[in-house]
Design a protein around this nucleic acid. Structure first.
Lengths: 242, 242
DNA sequence: CGAATAGTGTCTTTCAGACACTATAAC
DNA sequence: GTTATAGTGTCTGAAAGACACTATTCG
């Protein structure tokens, strides 16, 4: 504390979106290619600064989301991931970014990019492995977003956000397998999902596959918190380091 | 959106701390009484603005924490809780606050307040029930912090952060009971905690109670992620609303 | 001895994991 | 019929919940 005429410093506030979806049973993240410096031509998360000083941060996230995807705001999962504000993360000055995690159902279209040079879905494992040049600390943000999605799949009905309005149990299982990166036994998965009351509710039967028995369709149920949770067979590695 | 030479808006960045501890087997949160407007004389979370434009946010949280408590930075749990930036949350202007959650071991001293008019531990349930006049959106932040602590107790060794360097299993059980707000069976708790390898490690035996058999002492083990997790008997209420 | 707290053993039920089996479609 | 996917039934082992019992201190 000082007794001088001290004034608190100001920062630029940005919003970044980690938008995850499933394509070909693999987890993908939406990235744009930057058209301007810094990090020109590198991949980056969709996002941007607040429009005006009075804009709500969550509203800004929704705005950026609808600018980058043609997703319905209603059907959409969007939650705050965290703040990334290391000094020096942005060479332009002190930029503090609020990251959001959004889950999108599989979209047939690659993307309807508007803002950025071009936008597209990139496989998450490819992005995280470090092969792609990413702007700022966005690789870290994506890693945090993927990990958040993994954890939320256990305790919430988030998995249904990856699916369309109706889906089969097998499709739901694909979500878990893709996000967790493991294989699950279909029989046990059926049993577990069915007995978790309110998780999914029947929505008729329909053809989904070209061959084989037609699967029943389900919609997301009213339950948002899963108890007991879905069990992730084993953490990637049992933590122990000291 | 304008096509004028637009410049992004700036915001004031603050840091707020939800510091939780156990006193008399009840969860408490550290609050200060504001000496200045706005919300003069109301209770508020310890915190403040960045010192200078280049200060790291986490560093600012550590700084505020050591200003409010005399806790060792090393032994301390501090993690980001989220961003609270609603326009209008602060009448002075656009203030965006990054909230942090800190867990403190039970301290004999009420507090060594320095910055604020006076500081003290308040029972969490009392604070959350709405009896106390709280500044800004701090009640909401505290509620989020308590909920985060509840969840983290299940999957991490956070509970040991509530205890001193050594503790008995009964003391550890008290942490779970206080934070979760339920009673646990001591026998089953012993079994569960003991077989979670690396959670706690023996640290001799010593007198803790005035009467009865002396309890063994333990220290926090190397494991930070608990797998399998501690099971919270039932969520406060099974979520279902649509 | 009794009171009080610490800690162990055991039974039962529930549930995850493994896997054999049946069901319904296209061809 | 064969092939392919959907869905059910059953066994087994591990672990949570309930709770009787023993252990070690103080007075």
């Amino acid at each position: 504390m000082t007794d001088d005429p001290w004034v608190p410093p100001v920062v630029l506030l940005a919003v970044d979106l980690v938008i995850l979806t499933l394509r070909d049973s693999r987890l993908h993240v939406l990235l744009v290619r930057r058209g301007v410096d810094p990090y020109k031509d590198a991949f980056a998360l969709p996002g941007g600064f607040l429009n005006h000083a009075g804009e709500d941060i969550t509203a800004a996230a929704h705005r950026e989301l609808s600018e980058e995807t043609d997703l319905d705001v209603e059907t959409l999962s969007l939650e705050q991931l965290g703040v990334y504000g290391d000094p020096g993360r942005d060479p332009r000055g002190r930029v503090v970014s609020v990251a959001y995690l959004a889950i999108a159902p599989s979209l047939p279209e690659p993307t309807a990019g508007t803002d950025a040079a071009d936008a597209g879905w990139q496989p998450a494992d490819h992005v995280l492995s470090g092969d792609l040049q990413l702007a700022f600390d966005h690789r870290r943000i994506i890693a945090d977003g993927v990990e958040r999605a993994r954890v939320k799949l256990e305790h919430s009905a988030l998995a249904t956000a990856f699916c369309g309005p109706t889906f089969t149990i097998t499709e739901l299982q694909n979500v878990y397998e893709a996000v967790w990166g493991i294989r699950l036994d279909p029989r046990n998965f059926y049993r577990k999902v069915q007995k978790t009351e309110g998780f999914i509710v029947p929505a008729g039967t329909a053809r989904k596959a070209v061959t084989g028995r037609p699967a029943r369709l389900y919609r997301a149920g009213p339950r948002t918190v899963l108890y007991p949770p879905m069990i992730r067979p084993a953490p990637v590695s049992i933590e122990g380091g000291e």
